[in-house]
Design a protein around this nucleic acid. Structure first.
Lengths: 194, 194
DNA sequence: ATGGCCATGTAAGATGTTACATGATTTA
DNA sequence: TAAATCATGTAACATCTTACATGGCCAT
């Protein structure tokens, strides 16, 4: 049996959590999610659901509780639950432990290519928008706390921690770039033509 | 001109930073990187480099300083530098501000599918391996600090912040699951069959 | 009944991976 | 000189996105 991918694992998890649901319901979960890592596009979900059904990890009820056309509602099978557990771990894959990819951090690696002025604009925008986003996630966090599902709460709490860490890091970035490091072997000026 | 993707932006950045380099040199940067988000596989890099060259964002020198076969060394062109700057921003794309995707956090969403015992194993493993990884990144951080490139230092510092935040979050997860929330509308027990 | 939205797909394209083929250089 | 390794590619495949096609339901 092939390895369960991230999106497959998530879909399995959604079907497990929500009970019988149609592909469209699953799509909505991803579309409504604040993190747009996956768009929940039809071209991704429908073939994936068909794949999971072929592997007997989910099964369609004859009944269609919500679907309006001939939609089938899928529920997880026992072997689907096993697959979900295997995907969850332990053991965890190596890259799940490692530092999450962060587009902001990636860009910072090459920030020396910008002039001092544009670099400042970059940091200003990042800090402002990050602060705004922080408030959104704080609200989401309070909401999910009241919701009573500890897992949902902890997930949003984790997202909040990430954002707070990034926010503090950005302040350090600004400070360090204004007042370069001391302990380097060479002066921190990275003058480059252009 | 097509939008610059993340990997394209990174490759442009690498060529900008390291000066003339062969596709293989570029691959090594990704292969040696601690974050295995991109493998730097030949099938990704060689076509990508060819694409960038077609768009005149990088150009091959006639000389090959390091390549052993008929390898060409590429350097960034003026329009390539412009493309790099456009990719870096500002403005930053929306998803670069949002919470980075985190496989650990994703899995936590569905942790209720595991039995209490396996869930404990999950958290134990995550915490142990996270702590180990933390030490690695701390070392990398000190190394890059001494290296004198403030951008490289700040990138590893950002990675460290992320890991520390995750580590603290994991402790909160354990605590919350052992001693559920109070303020929920319904009791936090999410008993499910199996 | 018709225009608009809900829902289910499919098609084409972009981008990445693994696995393979092959040539050049170093090393035993 | 034979084996190992470095380096450059290509081919086949997987997976996701965007864009499109189409069918059913509902409100005016």
């Amino acid at each position: 049996m092939p390895r369960t991918t991230e999106l497959e694992g998530c879909v399995l998890g959604v079907v497990w959590e929500k009970g019988p649901c149609t592909p469209y319901t699953i799509r909505r979960v991803f579309q409504d999610s604040p993190s747009p890592h996956w768009t929940g596009s039809a071209g991704a979900i429908y073939p994936l659901v068909a794949r999971l059904a072929t592997r007997r990890l989910i099964r369609a009820d004859a009944r269609n509780p919500t679907g309006r056309r001939g939609a089938k509602a899928y529920r997880i099978t026992p072997s689907g639950l096993e697959a979900l557990k295997r995907w969850l771990g332990p053991p965890l894959p190596e890259w799940a432990i490692g530092v999450p990819v962060d587009a902001l951090r990636t860009r910072l690696r090459f920030l020396g290519a910008l002039t001092a002025q544009v670099r400042k604009d970059f940091l200003d925008e990042a800090e402002t928008r990050l602060r705004d986003h922080l408030r959104v996630v704080e609200k989401e966090c309070r909401r999910s706390r009241a919701g009573g599902d500890p897992f949902a709460y902890l997930v949003s709490r984790g997202a909040l921690s990430m954002l707070q860490a990034r926010s503090g890091w950005l302040r350090e970035v600004r400070h360090t770039l204004e007042k370069p490091l001391r302990s380097g072997r060479r002066p921190a000026s990275r003058a480059r033509k252009r």
